[in-house]
Write a protein that binds this DNA or RNA. Structure first.
Lengths: 330, 330
DNA sequence: GTCAGATGTCGAAGCGCTTCGAAAACGTTT
DNA sequence: AAACGTTTTCGAAGCGCTTCGACATCTGAC
């Protein structure tokens, strides 16, 4: 069973190869009758264009690269939601997705770009000082970053506005009358790595609290039950009047609740808890939360990349955080 | 800056295009001096072969498709470990990975196969009755499945030997003198969906317990704290002598421990707990566990696929489970 | 010194598609 | 009926690579 080529379709439909091509691409007008005949032949023969040949002739692979930070300690559910959304959206634009891991580094990007395997690149979890960023500037292929590097000039970046998110949490707690609050953040290493979103959340939270003249502090937070429990205990011992807690660490949020329960503090009666985390986690635990809109992020990133592929200019995008009130704050 | 082609390299090195090609592919002997000259030119010019052209001429895209079940409720960490491992291993064989989601269904597989985008397919989380399986049999492209469908005849499948895993847990508990035990499994829907690994674990566990003349039962297990807690309570109330617990549900295992704590049962003094879950979770909670060897699974799957790409026969593979004793059993 | 077989290199023919320029077919207008 | 635009279709030239057969050159055996 030889594979069906465009020549087979042309022969079957009684037209020239180029006519078939134009029917399929729509780049030139073809009469309705011919078009229909060609389309029928395509269907009958089960024709699928050869991707390599198409890429070679048109200089468009119809593939984008998705570079994921597949190292440990990432927020997996968010990553998956994001990846799913990228794949689905790319398909809507008739593109496929080549999966790469960050540990191929700049060389990997150079390779796929130079080999014309992909038309554009999507990098997730870009760090503040990222070795790949300067390369992306030089590459002919357009790219979109998830997250903001230190110098985003000339790049297209998409992210949740974490600063606003942090502020929003402080605001929510303040409006409910809480005067003393704390942010439990990512593990220490995440801050050390210079991960932008963690820092910006903290900054936004503290700034808003300060602006409102509230007592607030931010502490890193590891992810085992024991460490979380001791961090929570320390915090409550040191600040007996503390009644508002923001948790920006989806792996730890369950443990925080457990620790509060163990310490005899009820949520939300004694302590209000706001989480910044994916929706499913918050939903499951009925937590008031700012969700991480992974799906929207993926969709928008692809949209921007497709715009750039079409030669349109595309600026950066900060998604507005949305707070969903559930049962953990009062 | 026009992109560098093989003709540029040939000109620069003063040889024929075909010679460059043979140097790069190693398919014909080339003298050491010529070879070196060509390699130097490649380096100097920064040449990367055009993937489309290569695919077109050689009928090999050097890309494999990875089809992930990116729906909710999956075990994300395992999935990610697996994906990482697949990408890394594929790169070792000089292949890239095209990411697809299961919800493109059979049509998606047909499309990428027919368009010669990929040379082979890797499907994760194959279900017992999977619509895609019959298609895979017809496809010219070789494929490897993670998980076993009902009829694996003629297919190459890789999986952890879950039946052995279930048995191993029963065996471990039995050897420690536990006479009454239970398996907390996946949520009900997972069984209803006919997910093979869940069923096989249960079967292996129950069979081994029966063989040893122990009292054992298996119950499904949802993933919210409240549901887990009530399931655990029910179980312990109904079987006061129950001292051995196997948990095959990574999302629930934390809750199980919490529930036991809440019921005043200490682990491992009152109840021994064996988990079947990814290593990181077990490690974090210091649980005796059978780990899900996601990385090995990915590596072996790629290895088998590559063998098939080279025309070698490749049978199915069941990975032997390994039990790691930590602090939750006695 | 000649010849058979290695060994190393070259040229050219595609692979299946897109795209450009031009030809063919068709109405309209004179 | 000729001349002119339009619309529709065709043919051919690549895109950058692999691969096959053929040619050159070099061995060693006789």
């Amino acid at each position: 069973m030889r594979t069906v080529t465009i020549a087979d379709v042309a022969r079957h439909a009684g037209v020239a190869v180029s006519t078939v091509s134009y029917v399929l691409s729509g780049k030139r007008a073809i009469s309705a009758t011919t078009r229909q005949r060609v389309l029928d032949s395509v269907r009958v023969l089960g024709y699928h264009p050869n991707a390599g040949a198409r890429a070679l002739a048109s200089k468009r692979a119809n593939v984008i690269a998705l570079v994921l930070p597949l190292r440990a300690g990432m927020n997996l559910p968010v990553l998956m939601q994001f990846a799913t959304s990228v794949v689905a959206t790319a398909r809507q634009y008739d593109h496929d997705v080549l999966l790469m891991t960050a540990d191929e580094g700049p060389d990997g990007l150079r390779r796929v770009a130079a080999s014309a395997m992909v038309d554009g690149l999507l990098l997730m979890d870009v760090e503040v000082h990222d070795a790949r960023v300067s390369l992306l500037r030089k590459l002919a292929e357009p790219s979109v970053l998830i997250g903001f590097p230190a110098d985003a000039e000339g790049l297209t970046c998409v992210d949740l506005d974490f600063q606003r998110a942090g502020a929003l949490c402080a605001e929510h707690l303040a409006e409910r009358g809480h005067r003393e609050m704390a942010l439990l953040g990512a593990p220490e290493v995440v801050y050390e790595r210079g991960t932008g979103f963690a820092e910006r959340t903290r900054a936004g939270f503290l700034a808003e609290a300060t602006r409102r003249d509230l007592s607030a502090r931010a502490v890193p937070c590891e992810e085992t039950y024991d460490e979380v429990a001791s961090a929570v205990k320390l915090l409550l011992d040191a600040h007996p009047g503390l009644t508002g807690l923001v948790v920006h660490n989806e792996a730890a949020v369950g443990h925080v609740l457990g620790a509060l329960r163990a310490l005899g503090r009820s949520v939300p009666d004694d302590v209000s808890v706001v989480a910044i985390c994916p929706d499913d986690i918050a939903e499951r635990a009925r937590l008031t939360s700012v969700l991480i809109p992974a799906e929207e992020l993926g969709r928008e990133a692809v949209r921007l990349l497709m715009a750039k592929l079409d030669g349109l200019p595309a600026g950066s995008l900060l998604l507005e955080p949305r707070l969903t009130i559930r049962e953990s704050t009062r």
